[in-house]
Design a protein around this nucleic acid. Structure first.
Lengths: 330, 330
DNA sequence: TACGGTGTTGCAAGCGCTTGCAGAACCGCC
DNA sequence: GGCGGTTCTGCAAGCGCTTGCAACACCGTA
């Protein structure tokens, strides 16, 4: 492994000059810069991040704290964050919490000082805890809004509302919502939005769950949904809807003739030819990208608080044939 | 942030003693050890990993290079690796390659020296490249076997073969296989196994794809599968099978009356009540666990080559009602 | 009593980088 | 020609740990 010193020798300058050539090229004379760069390239020099971290106090690592890797939404977010990190020449450390508060706290505790900042996906900690964490290291949260903490969310409640409206137009009176992860902030928001709307319009909202947002849970909930007599059901995410559809299929329940369906994200259905399922296009990758970018900016900008912003990205609604008028009763 | 020196002062010893108390407690007198530990606990001391890395040359980071985070298999593997890493007090850096060879190579190159070792999931690089990488840092690969490199795979070809046998028993003559990621070593293995068996038994194997192992691709392939007249279809993974089932459902194709189905993993179906789908239980979490464990052991053991081992974990077959005799023709 | 061992501790020299400071070289200007 | 001001470069002091070596005490034994 070639070090700063080796490059310096090869270029006929001092180590400090090489260091500056790498990190603040404008402080180095053009000709010197060129020589140093050539030497560095030739020797395949790569700065030792540990040494750099030791002096600068910045590690170049960003922590992503994620509840669950089976949920495709998080996959998207992480991919986006990865892109951003790579561009800004940082690395991503990931920790899985299984949605448990203690593991989330442990991650925050154990990784403090080892990473430059935290991106928390759908964190379950209290707002107070998160605010406290933010005081020790830059923090952004995704898929939840926390007062005083920079956050990135998709407007899925708004999107769901649009779908709900469409169902009302179609004449539905009983709409189901298969709720997402217990304790989830986002699920509460979606539920609240739907409940609100239902109340205002005089429709009945049936809430099922909350359940872990997994295929099997969707399938398991299908019976209850059908028994409730809802003419339509919205699912917290596409994994759940997939489960519902699977079980509907096995039972010979027809969509949308017997029941209308939609999901609050299109992770599974995104590239489906003909888009047969109503769902929201949620910009998971972009959320990750923005979050990591913001985080890195906070880190570069001295780590402190550039007034926390709360960014809400729009979702796009795909209204398709999976929605229809309710079956005539009796 | 409390440092070694602070703890030393509090405990009335030198910094070196504190260091030893932390990393080689047997070199420290019991009474001293106790004092140091108490002081460390009180001050909330956590060794600065950058400083440690600088002296020891070991960073405590393990790189996981993964093609795609939407595939639940990788989610499982990463979760397992996370557990192992946490236990052995290492951290996981993850990089997404989208299955592209250049990005895989870039990860290997850019992260060399920044991490203690690499776990490559379903790598697409050539065996020679991987062997070369192994010479520079400890490497384990998951879901592929590479000569000279420690690997962990699940015996999905064997499991698929058992399902195939069952189909033969049921009287099938035309069996489809919806193939997985283009260029995938594991997919080739599965295909080869099936082709072999089909040839020996005089059945016809219809291969569809290969396609990206995503829900939408499964759905898109359904038409072709049906047109082929296969009485049964095996899918590279459960995401693909889900897609197939989805489209079958929309077209009114009944499973298993019209067509039998099975998947080479049970990631989606694992917890399904009544296990309606034939699939393999593939130990994704355990693969990750073992891989990370092995990697960490290689790192601790001097990094060099403790004779590469190739571990194949068994898969368990669930034969259920998704398999039936082929529909009588005409 | 003297001596080699053993067990425990401290000293100090790094690990490979960054960065404040000072020196050197050069500029234009009075 | 001398001076202040720029630009560029090098020196050296760390950053917070680890670790080889030496110092020291204390032991049992000759």
């Amino acid at each position: 492994m070639a070090g700063l010193e080796d490059v310096a020798r090869a270029a006929g300058v001092s180590a400090s000059t090489v260091s500056r050539a790498m990190s603040r090229p404008d402080m180095v004379a053009p000709r010197t810069l060129e020589r140093v760069r050539a030497a560095a390239a030739e020797l395949g020099f790569r700065a030792n991040p540990a040494a750099r971290a030791l002096t600068t106090g910045r590690t170049g690592y960003l922590a992503m704290v994620v509840p669950d890797l089976h949920n495709p939404f998080y996959g998207g977010v992480i991919s986006g964050a990865q892109q951003a990190a790579e561009r800004r020449d940082a690395r991503l450390v990931i920790t899985v919490t299984d949605g448990r508060q203690d593991r989330e706290a442990a991650a925050l505790r154990d990784l403090a000082g080892q990473v430059d900042g935290f991106a928390l996906l759908s964190p379950v900690s209290t707002a107070a805890e998160l605010a406290a964490a933010r005081r020790r290291a830059p923090v952004v949260v995704v898929n939840r809004r926390v007062p005083g903490v920079t956050s990135f969310t998709a407007d899925t409640p708004g999107g769901l509302a649009r779908i709900f409206d469409r169902l009302e137009e179609l004449g539905h009176t009983d709409v189901g919502y298969l709720a997402g992860p217990p304790g989830s902030w986002m699920d509460r928001r979606r539920r609240a939005e739907l409940r609100d709307r239902a109340a205002r319009r005089g429709l009945r909202l049936h809430v099922f769950g909350p359940v872990r947002p997994a295929f099997a849970e969707g399938a398991a909930a299908a019976g209850e949904v059908l028994a409730s007599g809802c003419g339509a059901v919205l699912a917290y995410n596409s994994l759940l809807l997939l489960g519902l559809l699977f079980e509907f299929g096995r039972r010979g329940v027809r969509v949308p003739a017997d029941i209308s369906v939609a999901a609050a994200d299109d992770m599974a259905f995104a590239d489906l030819p003909g888009q047969p399922i109503s769902a929201l296009r949620v910009p998971a990758v972009e959320l990750g990208l923005r979050a990591a970018d913001a985080l890195r900016a906070m880190v570069d900008g001295g780590g402190s608080s550039p007034r926390p912003a709360s960014r809400i990205l729009p979702t796009e609604v795909t209204l398709t044939g999976s929605l229809a008028a309710p079956p005539s009763r009796g």
